[in-house]
């Protein structure tokens, strides 16, 4: 893990120190994905968040929103101090992203909605012959929703090569391993059969993520999917692969101290 990924995780810990709750594991598996997108891939203007030609990023797995908030604050969509208000009365930063917070393209959190919304955005670009791209991050647990596959069927039909789906394949959902609850394999074959060009990569390797995401569309005339192999709760001894941290409230001082120690020892 490089210095920037460590710094982003430390900031996440500082947010937790204030709000003491959140879908921590789901955010930690996403951090490198959102980091590479906002650092190097997406075209956007924080001063004009509704710029018509911006690339759209829809976080369909809305519970991973801390990873999104970190990058939106980092890029100046809203003041960094606001990060530390998350989940408190009057804050714009909910436990799932709300529409209206600059940089949030759609309110998500009810699973299985974001891909359809992204497809609508990609179709609008097609109608208007605009060059913007649409990226949608979905969870692997989320991929148990039927609406994800309704959407996938539709993206294939419309040959939306301006659409890229990022699957946060951390193999872990609220109760435990996806393999035990509802296995998704063969996941790549599923996406292929729905008309997608499929790539797979290490979702924590920023170099590989950059290379893959710089090459979209993966194939002209087809929507793309990048299955990002990740670890839920990546970065901390207490959280990694631990479903107890899928969502956690009442995060203790000791939890926070342990997380800081983990980062210092890396």
């Amino acid at each position: 893990m490089d210095e920037r990924s460590r710094a982003l995780r430390l900031k996440l810990v500082r947010i937790l120190e204030q709000c003491r709750r959140g879908h921590i594991g789901a955010a930690l598996s996403l951090i490198e994905i959102t980091r590479v997108l906002f650092d190097e891939i997406l075209r956007y203007d924080p001063a004009n968040p509704l710029w018509e030609d911006r690339d759209r990023f829809v976080l369909s797995k809305g519970h991973g929103c801390l990873a999104l908030y970190l990058m939106l604050a980092d890029k100046g969509f809203f003041p960094e101090e606001e990060l530390f208000t998350a989940c408190s009365f009057g804050s714009r930063l909910g436990g799932h992203p709300e529409y209206g917070l600059p940089g949030v393209e759609a309110a998500t959190g009810a699973l299985g909605h974001g891909l359809s919304i992204g497809i609508g955005m990609a179709l609008a670009a097609q109608i208007d012959r605009k060059p913007y791209r649409v990226f949608v991050a979905v969870g692997d647990g989320e991929s148990q929703e039927g609406s994800i596959w309704e959407a996938a069927m539709s993206a294939g039909k419309h040959r939306l090569d301006n659409l890229t789906v990022l699957v946060d394949r951390n193999h872990m959902q609220c109760y435990g391993p996806t393999e035990e609850i509802q296995d998704l394999e063969p996941l790549a074959d599923k996406w292929t059969s729905f008309g997608f060009e499929v790539r797979e990569c290490d979702g924590h390797d920023v170099d590989v993520l950059r290379t893959e995401l710089s090459s979209v569309p993966f194939r002209p005339g087809k929507p793309g999917v990048l299955i990002c192999h990740t670890l839920k709760g990546m970065g901390f001894s207490s959280t990694v692969n631990n479903p107890d941290w899928h969502h956690k409230s009442h995060i203790s001082d000791e939890d926070i101290s342990q997380m800081v120690r983990d980062l210092e020892s890396m």
């Binding site: 393209e105 759609a106 909605h113 974001g114 359809s116 497809i119 609508g120 990609a122 609008a124 539709s154």
Partner: peptide, 8 residues
């Protein structure tokens, strides 16, 4: 959902 994305 697709209609929402178009409207957005």
């Amino acid at each position: 959902g697709m209609a929402a994305g178009l409207a957005l």
